[in-house]
Design a protein around this nucleic acid. Sequence first.
DNA 1: AGAACTATCGGAAACGTTTTAGATTATGAT
DNA 2: ATCATAATCTAAAACGTTTCCGATAGTTCT
Lengths: 384, 384
Amino acid sequence: MQKCLKCGKVDGVIRSGIVRGKQRYYCKSCDFSFVLDQNNPDLPKNKGLTTIVDIARHLGISVSTVSRALNDKFDINPNTKKLVNQAAIDLDYKPNLIAQSLHKGYSHIIGVVVPDIEHPYFAKMLAGIHNIINHTAYSIIVCHSNESAELEYLHIEKLLSYRVDGILISHSKTVFDFDHIQKVINKKVPIINIDRIVNQHEIPKVVNNDIEGSKEVVQHLFACKYKRIAIIAGPKSLSITQKRTQGYLDAFQEKGIEPQTDLMVYSDFTSAGLINAFNTLMSLPEPPDAIFCIFFKDAIDSIKLAKKRNIKIPEELGVAAFGDDAISGNVEPTLTAYNPNPVKLGEVSVSILLDKIKNKENPKEMSTIIEGELMIRDSTRKFL
Amino acid sequence: MQKCLKCGKVDGVIRSGIVRGKQRYYCKSCDFSFVLDQNNPDLPKNKGLTTIVDIARHLGISVSTVSRALNDKFDINPNTKKLVNQAAIDLDYKPNLIAQSLHKGYSHIIGVVVPDIEHPYFAKMLAGIHNIINHTAYSIIVCHSNESAELEYLHIEKLLSYRVDGILISHSKTVFDFDHIQKVINKKVPIINIDRIVNQHEIPKVVNNDIEGSKEVVQHLFACKYKRIAIIAGPKSLSITQKRTQGYLDAFQEKGIEPQTDLMVYSDFTSAGLINAFNTLMSLPEPPDAIFCIFFKDAIDSIKLAKKRNIKIPEELGVAAFGDDAISGNVEPTLTAYNPNPVKLGEVSVSILLDKIKNKENPKEMSTIIEGELMIRDSTRKFL
DNA sequence: AGAACTATCGGAAACGTTTTAGATTATGAT
DNA sequence: ATCATAATCTAAAACGTTTCCGATAGTTCT
């Protein structure tokens, strides 16, 4: 039936089980078990890229010597080093970072999770991160959670699997359970929370200057001699609503003026919500003469609505926003806005992360606040 | 002087060379060489994350069994599999993708090189890439070349070192030497060229519909009954100038009208250049009654300039652009523009790349063209 | 010419995983 | 019980590096 691979006999060879899906045979004569190996000509694993072993063989020396040569270790003959370096060029050798990572225990990769890469704000944040990273040996794996909690969880898993040296995360709106972050902390993987933060963990956070920035805007409106300054906020539960409203109130307090609750309206960041909010304000017995929108798009829409009603901006109504955009400088009139600094936000976050990776210690302050800049434009120049 | 580590004697121990920077000793009595190891309590390499070995030890079985259990191999006892899976959860095991990559020979990482992540166009392209990638086992390393040739070269090196399974690249403006791409090809690493392409390599390319899109814009202008349609292009050497001008000319040809060279001006994408171009056109004995800008920003600026001169848009002058942006819908009048589809550009590119990684073969067509959409707005509604 | 010393090399282990190849134990039929 | 067969396990190699531990050949003193 089946010839024995060892002694060549056919008698005495019996089937003896199935192993890994293949028939196994046993030869009684020579006490030998075997399966037929269908020599499958697998794809070559090595992508064909040169390895240190190729260099060693090429020069007839050992791999350890090649390694020491390439890494500028001192117990190496300068001449050998020269030879190795030349061979590396000739064979177009690129060190295998995967192998290095495995050996050294760190990957030189940092993971970044953002909820919306398409948004100019996050795009700028990423640019800031790259600004710093481009001068280091690190690379970044960018994950897009697309405002989905499930994806955020998955991405964190993946990043841990890639054994990233650290993680930067800006949470999705839809995440309310933060076990995934706790797991990262448990594994002692450095992690920094940017912009969309959550306070329940003892990790460094880097955020916008929401309170001060909003205060600046409102102070500017006061300086323009507006008397009845309204605010169009977002859902009350959101931290940005709370902080930016806080800044609004702070400005009133410093000015010594009592804020009026009917001038504080809460929308939901939709166009319909804004129209509602705007109409509510304008229907007041004493409508506002200025509006501070905590959301940039609401300000743009407010300008449009005011123009429809033939309300003159900035003379009859001042409009200002928290958050800037290229649009702000191109609408008519151009929109005064507090411009946060997402680029710096990114830069500072990675810097803190890199520091934490190297020194294993947190920054002095757990929370870092990034200053922005008030862009004064035509929508508020009443008396300036 | 120095006690022998083997026999304990002090006499007969002599210094015997320096090895790896440390003093070496030799004991004549027992013929033994040694260096003092200052037991440096190195940082633990393993970040403390659970490994397959931990699971094996925890259950008292072998690592290969654990591996087979986790990978759903068939020659495994269902009970053992259950045990292993439970242990994996208990110990919060995450597979080490680095080790897997090294073993399997592919990293499940793809590299993306973009010249400007901050730009909404590329941000959208990245979003498209993520859309597809998020449904696969792949992750992406994003590299920002920041329009620098040096950085682009460096990034390609790094990606090769990371043994990425494939590369998507959109070239920097400043790159004129494409050796780095040739090296990638030589190493048989799949690579796709997106948007900012170069034609000297036999690799798949994915691009915008520059010619057809421009033609559509001009055809639309004709449909609006504009008679003297000008084009403000970019530097003549650029491929986008050539392609979009081509579209402009194609529209004229189909209409059976001879294009006039004095209505075709070449700018340089700067504000100063645009002002110059605009003035040149308007100073013509017979100025144009419509302008097609191949660069979106030039159209926005043209609108501003026309308004300054009290030229009515769209009645006296139609303005349209190649390239869309959130600004287009917010200026006054809103700007008609051909909106390319960078999201789809990204999606199609990765799909082609993933296909090439899996099947090792190029798409049927080396060049894929992504259709956009003409957004008709107020700046051209003359007779519509 | 020995002894003492230096410079430079090579072998092997380790990182965490998968896979190959074979061993061992269990089951079923006679 | 015994033999044929099946099911399930383990050891070891391999992926590409770096590093540890030592070996060896050459050099410089006495």
